[in-house]
Amino acid sequence: MRDRIAYRLPYAVMAVLGLFMLVQYYIPHQVVQAPRQMMLQWKQPLNGFIILLAIVGIATVHVRKIYRQERRWGYSIITLGAMAAMIFVGFAYGVQEGTIFSDWFKYLISPIEATMFSLLAFYVASAAFRAFRARSASAAILLVSATVVMLALIPAVSQNIPLISEISAFILKYPNTAAKRAILIGVSLGAISVALKTIIGIDRTLLERDGK
């Protein structure tokens, strides 16, 4: 009996709160909006707590890796050391502009992340080389659209080839918007259906116990 309650209670909580959060959107009365506001106030620190737990989780994984001396465990020392150092300077010297914390963000984190994303230029260029082949009507349309938009964004080209900027603007304003709208409508309808199925308990995958 106790086990059955422990199993079913989360689904009940999900149904009651989920339907409440859905219905409150259409009832602007204080009786409904006050508890809504309170629940949103509860959720903010919970979001923060989940992030903090996730970071503790990363630390645990690396500590375990070092303890068991798994493959490439030496790099875990770097990760843990960097994490500890960043947390220390953040709490010891503050986080304002000009502190060690903000300098480390500017000169350590930003260059590595920017360079990692810039590396993708090589891989995207290689993917473009394979994708931009006019094997079919659809592929030809992709090629033409991408080429026109790309060329129009390069100042030297857009200044010397007449009408390319206008054609690019037309593509971005009309057919591109049409495609984005259709995708957005489809994604939204899909998200609504998944949310409803989860709230009313038809889809139980998110709250399953040990995968059962």
Binding site: Q44, P45, N47, G48, F49, I51, L52, I55, I58, A59, R72, Y75, S76, I78, T79, L80, G81, A82, M83, A84, A85, M86, I87, G90, F91, V95, F101, W104, F105, L108, I109, I112, E113, M116
Partner: peptide, 24 residues
């Protein structure tokens, strides 16, 4: 690999301090 592990550690530390200071 050193750069990769360094940025993971620094970013995790950055997020920890930021979420602690701004949210939690």
């Amino acid at each position: 690999a050193v750069c990769e592990h360094l940025v993971v550690g620094l970013s995790a530390g950055y997020m920890f301090v930021t979420y602690w200071n701004n949210v939690f």
